[in-house]
Amino acid sequence: MRPSLLGSFLAFWILLSLFTSKAFSQESGLNHRWKVIYVGKFQNPKSQKRMEALFFEFDQSSRAYFGSLGCNSVSGTFSLVGTDGILLKPNTSTLMTCPSMEVELDMQNALEKTRAYKIETGTLYLLDESGKTLMMLQKVD
């Protein structure tokens, strides 16, 4: 009886370690500055004023994020769900009138629909509930 109990405990411990290490590595991987390389129908979108790349930053310790939408900026909090789930909650956003709102709307839509993420080779993928990529960001720091 003892060997099977010990075996069950070891199997449980191994599985727990695998899931925990994946969650930790994903979570700690968010804690960077990211350049937006794809959102909606846009590749490498730029800010409207200065024509600079759009960036997002995630701070794991405060569970906060900040980013550029193209013309306006947004900040908020995020919560992690399981090993790869994430919910982005916008708290504040600037409300400037922009000449074109296309990138802005695609960015807002992606943030609202994001339910999961994955990080592969320095690229952060924000995914909807079906696993479709909504936004791709490249680590820059």
Rank of each mutant, 00 (worst) to 15 (best):
58 F>A: 04
57 E>I: 14
126 L>R: 07
99 P>G: 03
105 L>V: 14
56 F>T: 05
54 L>I: 13
123 T>G: 00
35 K>P: 02
62 S>N: 13
36 V>G: 01
125 Y>I: 03
127 L>C: 11
81 V>R: 13
24 F>H: 13
56 F>L: 08
133 T>A: 15
92 T>S: 14
59 D>T: 15
59 D>A: 09
4 S>V: 12
125 Y>F: 15
35 K>H: 01
128 D>F: 02
61 S>L: 10
17 S>D: 11
106 D>I: 00
102 E>C: 01
140 V>C: 04
29 G>V: 04
58 F>P: 04
114 T>A: 15
39 V>C: 02
85 G>V: 05
104 E>M: 09
37 I>D: 07
127 L>V: 09
60 Q>A: 09
36 V>Y: 05
43 Q>A: 11
110 A>L: 09
91 N>D: 15
32 H>L: 00
119 I>D: 08
107 M>E: 05
120 E>D: 11
38 Y>S: 15
83 T>S: 13
61 S>I: 08
99 P>R: 10
78 F>W: 04
138 Q>M: 14
15 L>M: 07
110 A>S: 10
46 K>W: 01
131 G>I: 03
72 N>M: 09
117 Y>Q: 01
20 T>P: 02
112 E>D: 09
61 S>W: 02
136 M>N: 14
110 A>D: 06
9 F>G: 12
57 E>N: 10
76 G>S: 03
119 I>A: 07
62 S>D: 09
79 S>Y: 08
72 N>R: 13
124 L>T: 07
105 L>T: 15
110 A>N: 06
57 E>R: 13
12 F>E: 01
78 F>A: 06
55 F>S: 07
66 F>T: 15
1 M>L: 10
8 S>M: 12
90 P>E: 10
134 L>P: 13
41 K>C: 01
47 S>K: 07
7 G>E: 02
102 E>V: 01
92 T>W: 06
17 S>I: 02
76 G>R: 10
103 V>R: 00
116 A>T: 03
66 F>W: 13
58 F>W: 06
107 M>A: 05
53 A>K: 11
123 T>C: 04
17 S>H: 05
16 L>G: 13
74 V>P: 03
92 T>E: 12
139 K>S: 10
103 V>C: 02
96 M>D: 03
31 N>L: 01
41 K>A: 12
134 L>H: 10
25 S>T: 10
29 G>C: 03
24 F>N: 11
135 M>W: 05
87 L>T: 14
71 C>R: 07
139 K>I: 10
82 G>R: 04
45 P>H: 02
116 A>M: 09
42 F>R: 00
3 P>A: 06
10 L>W: 03
136 M>I: 06
45 P>W: 00
17 S>P: 00
71 C>F: 08
113 K>E: 09
111 L>Q: 05
16 L>E: 06
125 Y>K: 09
96 M>W: 06
88 L>S: 07
105 L>Y: 08
135 M>A: 14
16 L>H: 10
61 S>F: 06
134 L>S: 12
141 D>E: 08
41 K>H: 07
60 Q>G: 00
82 G>V: 07
74 V>H: 03
74 V>G: 07
61 S>M: 11
109 N>M: 06
50 R>V: 04
138 Q>C: 04
20 T>A: 15
40 G>R: 01
10 L>C: 12
109 N>Y: 04
20 T>Y: 11
14 I>C: 11
